[in-house]
C-alpha cells in the first residue's frame, strides 16, 4: 500500500510540476463556467416566463444541476485522454519504466498508483465545480443529495475513462498515438447507442448498456442504482486488468 501511495504521489506531483495539471484544470474551469453561465441564463428565462400558480416551480436540481453535469461528462470525454495519455507512454519513452520495473514493486502496485494519481487530478478538477454549486446553494435551495450522487457518478465515470486510458497508454511509447486512440475509444463508448436501434431490441439493450455516459443519467437524477455502480466498477477492474496484462506482455516481448 505504501508503494501504491508513493507512486500515486509521484504521478500527482508530476502533473503539477508540468503545465498539464494547470492547463487541464484551467481550461476545464473555463468551459464549465461557460456551460454553467449559459444554463443559468436559460433557467432564469424559463422561471421568469412561468406564470405563478400555473404549476409546480422549476426544480433546480432537475432543470439546472442535472443538465450542467451531463455537460461536464462531455468535457471530461475530451480532457481525460490528455490526463491518461502520458501515464505509461511517457515512462516508456524516457526510460523511467526501467526504474519502475527493476524496483521491488509489483505491476499491480504501479498500475494502482498511476490510476489513483490520475484519479486525484480528476478529483481536483471536479472540485473546481464545487464553487459554482456553492453559488447555487447560496442563492437557491437545491437538494444536496442529488448533487452528491452526481459527483459520485462523475467520479465513477472518470475512473472508467482513466482505467481505459491507462490501458491504451500502456500499449504505446507515443503519447500522441495514446491520446488519439483514447479519445476515439471514449467517443465511441459515448455514442455507441446511436446505432443500437439497428440491432433489434436485444441488441439495443446490450449496446446501450455499454455506453459509458448512459449510466450517468440516473446518478444525475439522484438515484444510486447498483446496476450502474456495478457496471462502472467492473469496467474499471477490467481496464486495470488489461493494463496489467499489457505491461506483463511488454516485459516478455522486451
Amino acid at each position: 500500500m505504501r508503494n501504491v501511495i508513493t507512486i500515486a504521489r509521484k504521478e500527482l506531483q508530476s502533473y503539477f510540476a508540468s503545465p498539464i495539471a494547470y492547463v487541464v484544470i484551467g481550461f476545464f474551469a473555463l468551459l464549465f463556467g461557460y456551460f454553467f453561465a449559459s444554463l443559468i441564463y436559460w433557467f432564469e428565462q424559463q422561471s421568469l416566463q412561468m406564470t405563478p400558480g400555473s404549476g409546480p416551480p422549476l426544480n433546480i436540481n432537475q432543470a439546472l444541476i442535472g443538465p450542467v453535469f451531463m455537460n461536464v461528462s462531455v468535457i471530461v470525454l475530451f480532457v481525460m485522454p490528455m490526463i491518461t495519455m502520458r501515464t505509461y507512454a511517457e515512462e516508456k519513452r524516457s526510460g523511467t519504466m526501467e526504474l519502475l520495473l527493476t524496483s521491488p514493486l509489483t505491476d499491480v502496485q504501479i498500475i494502482l498508483g498511476k490510476f489513483l494519481g490520475a484519479l486525484g487530478l480528476y478529483a481536483v478538477m471536479l472540485a473546481v465545480t464545487l464553487i459554482h454549486v456553492g453559488v447555487l446553494f447560496l442563492y437557491g435551495n437545491p437538494e444536496w443529495k442529488p448533487v452528491a450522487t452526481v459527483y459520485l457518478g462523475l467520479l465513477l465515470m472518470g475512473a472508467c475513462f482513466i482505467s481505459a486510458g491507462l490501458f491504451i497508454s500502456s500499449l504505446t511509447k507515443n503519447q500522441i498515438v495514446a491520446g488519439m486512440v483514447t479519445f476515439a475509444v471514449f467517443l465511441l463508448l459515448w455514442v455507441i447507442n446511436w446505432l443500437g436501434q439497428s440491432f433489434g431490441p436485444t441488441g439495443q439493450a446490450v449496446i446501450s448498456h455499454l455506453s459509458i455516459t448512459e449510466h450517468l443519467d440516473d446518478f444525475a437524477r439522484g438515484i444510486i442504482d447498483t446496476k450502474h455502480v456495478i457496471y462502472y466498477l467492473s469496467f474499471i477492474v477490467f481496464g486495470l486488468f488489461l493494463t496489467a496484462k499489457s505491461v506483463d506482455s511488454e516485459r516478455w516481448r522486451g
Binding site: K10, S14, S18, S94, G95, T96, E98, L99, T102, P104
Partner: peptide
C-alpha cells in the same frame, strides 16, 4: 521482489523524471 531489493541498476540512459 527480494532479488530487486538487493539490486541497484543504472540503465544506459539514466531513468530520470525531467520535471522532478
Amino acid at each position: 521482489i527480494e532479488a530487486k531489493k538487493r539490486t541497484g541498476y543504472l540503465p544506459e540512459t539514466p531513468p530520470l523524471y525531467p520535471d522532478m
